[in-house]
């Protein structure tokens, strides 16, 4: 009766209602987000897709407490983004790997753990574990410049996973990588998601990437930034790369494309 756990489990992981965000610029106010409503459940893989200026990154930053909404609310794990951030509820992966050149790969992954006050033994254990998770075991002592771009981005994902947050917020993490590396990382990310049961919010502007990865695709459009369509993907959880040639896949991709076209003003 008084067990609090089922209570928490009932909360969606992310819950945005009536969310608005307006930036005041020299050219007047910019509506980055208008009336955004969205629920993300535990274990979802949600992609946010849309042209630049549609507010997908801004929405992610609101979840991460890096931007403050003008009105409306966002709850992360049932609490405000600020409380969630301080409770280390999420790991954030930026567009660039952003590894510190003066730290080894291991040292970079240890960085958030040091900041959060883990003891040395726990740090070493977690570094080992997440490096294995992103298939970079053996690279702990290497420096970032000794790794390829794809490997650096994997290391930055490992860093976001190191402190075992349940939510992974990813802002176009593979945007700067070439197609082949990207396919490989997408497969790895799916495997990682299956193993860790994390809830992932993933910003992208690639339709195949969004359809391939997600259980839920959020289509957004600009001026003002808003959600135009939310597609629940019927694709199975097991997804080999070849799934991209199936009719189901192409059908979802088509719907995403239609959604993007509708929302786009072409002015």
């Amino acid at each position: 009766m008084t067990d609090p756990k089922p209570e928490i489990a009932r909360h969606p992981v992310i819950e945005a209602s009536g969310l608005n965000l307006t930036f005041d610029t020299n050219d007047g106010p910019v509506h980055a987000l208008r009336d955004v409503n969205l629920k993300v459940d535990k274990g979802d893989f949600v992609s946010f897709i849309g042209p630049s200026g549609c507010g997908k990154t801004t929405f992610l930053r609101v979840m991460a407490d890096l931007e403050q909404p003008t009105s409306g609310s966002v709850l992360v794990n049932g609490v405000t983004p600020e409380v969630a951030r301080k409770a280390r509820a999420y790991g954030y992966v930026f567009q660039a790997a952003g590894l510190y050149p003066w730290r080894t790969i291991g040292g970079n992954i240890r960085l958030p753990l040091e900041i959060m006050g883990y003891d040395k033994a726990a740090q070493a254990e977690r570094v080992r574990k997440v490096l294995e998770l992103v298939e970079l075991s053996g690279f702990e002592k290497k420096y970032p410049w000794q790794l390829s771009g794809g490997m650096q981005q994997r290391a930055s994902i490992a860093r976001a996973l190191a402190f075992e947050a349940d939510i992974l917020l990813m802002d176009e993490p593979f945007g700067a990588l070439d197609e082949i590396v990207r396919d490989h990382l997408n497969e790895q990310l799916l495997a990682l998601w299956a193993r860790t049961q994390k809830t992932i919010c993933f910003v992208t502007h690639s339709i195949p990437e969004a359809v391939f990865l997600s259980t839920k695709i959020v289509v957004m459009s600009p001026r003002p930034g808003r959600i135009t369509d939310v597609i629940e993907s019927p694709l199975p959880k097991e997804r080999p790369l070849e799934i991209r040639d199936t009719p189901e896949f192409l059908e979802i991709a088509h719907r995403v494309r239609e959604g993007l076209r509708e929302g786009h003003a072409y002015d």
């Binding site: 951030r85 954030y92 930026f94 660039a96 952003g98 900041i115």
Partner: peptide, 26 residues
């Protein structure tokens, strides 16, 4: 340090001191 690096520190809820010693100073 870039905005991204500073934001990153914020996502880890780093204190000003930690941000200074681990990012700004180096």
């Amino acid at each position: 340090p870039s905005t991204m690096q500073l934001d990153q520190m914020r996502t880890w809820s780093a204190t000003r001191r930690q941000e200074f010693l681990r990012l700004r100073l180096p």
